[in-house]
Design a protein around this nucleic acid. Structure first.
Lengths: 159, 159
DNA sequence: GGCGTCTCGTTCAAATTTGAACTGTGATGC
DNA sequence: GCATCACAGTTCAAATTTGAACGAGACGCC
């Protein structure tokens, strides 16, 4: 292994922007969602994934992968969402080890109530700030980065 | 307020890629740093910021902003780093309320030891996956997003 | 000087995340 | 049949993060 290829100015700029933007953005989205709908950003993402799945349900592990969360972390969050009546658990008939998380009608209703404000903020802070070219570059570039990390080694749901 | 402008396919693709990439990437970097150098990614970023500052020191609040962290969160992390001997606190002579976090020689040494592996992974997972155009678009686009969020309302160090 | 307001950093309890065990069950090879 | 390994989800303690409240000072204004 040769000497380290340090990041040049352009690369550093991209890297810092990437890290910083996510942290700030996530914080804002979290605050807005908590204030408006009483759920965290992570919980919103979980509900959204479920709403997009066939029959509004997904196995715990699939869901953990889909939201890039650890298994135990998901167990905790589904517990919270279940207590709030937004999700329920369902045993799988074919494999007794498996558990489905199912979006309830209340969960769907909350999601529909929360979505407009959430999307508006995502637009305001990120999407509408980018030029169409930048948007495409971001989707293509980070899409590829994502794909490689998922293929690469572990399945994203680390634990 | 009119009807919600939902995200179109392209926008959704960009948004999902952005969220997913960060989560996955952060997890990987965290694991590598913990394994190789015994510090978290956040701690690495803190040390790196300090190393880039004049005299290797920064006020607590400035540092909190710089790493997009809450004030109380930074107090905790600096506590950890101080216990590990990587950082020390220094009172400010002009304003008794203020505290400087100062990078120690040990901290600098650890940073230099950790940096090559860290940078290599950042390259492998993100930077080198992007085309030069995508890299520029990311730096420009997210840079602008960042700038607006910092100007916009609160100073990023929310708490 | 005295008063109200803001800032700096810390503290505290509660919420959340992490990673390593652990339980119970498939799947596979012999 | 029966070891053995892999897998799904949970549990648990420890680490971390959050947000509100606090103490001590600055700072401006009268």
């Amino acid at each position: 292994m040769g000497r380290t290829r340090w990041l040049n100015a352009e690369e550093k700029r991209a890297w810092n922007a990437f890290i910083g933007t996510y942290e700030l953005l996530n914080r804002r989205l979290d605050q807005q969602l908590k204030q408006d709908s009483g759920i965290s950003h992570l919980q919103y993402v979980i509900l959204a994934r479920l709403s997009a799945a066939p029959d509004h349900e997904l196995r715990m592990t699939e869901l953990a992968c889909a939201v890039s969360n650890s298994k135990s972390g998901l167990t905790y969050q589904i517990g919270q969402l279940e207590r709030a009546g937004l999700v329920r658990r369902r045993a799988c008939e074919s494999d007794p080890r498996a558990v489905y998380a199912v979006l309830t009608d209340e969960g769907m209703a909350l999601l529909e109530q929360a979505a407009p404000g959430h999307v508006a903020l995502v637009r305001e802070l990120l999407i509408d700030v980018l030029t169409p070219d930048q948007l495409t570059a971001l989707a293509d570039g980070l899409g590829e980065v994502n794909r490689r990390m998922l293929t690469d080694r572990d399945p994203g749901c680390s634990d």
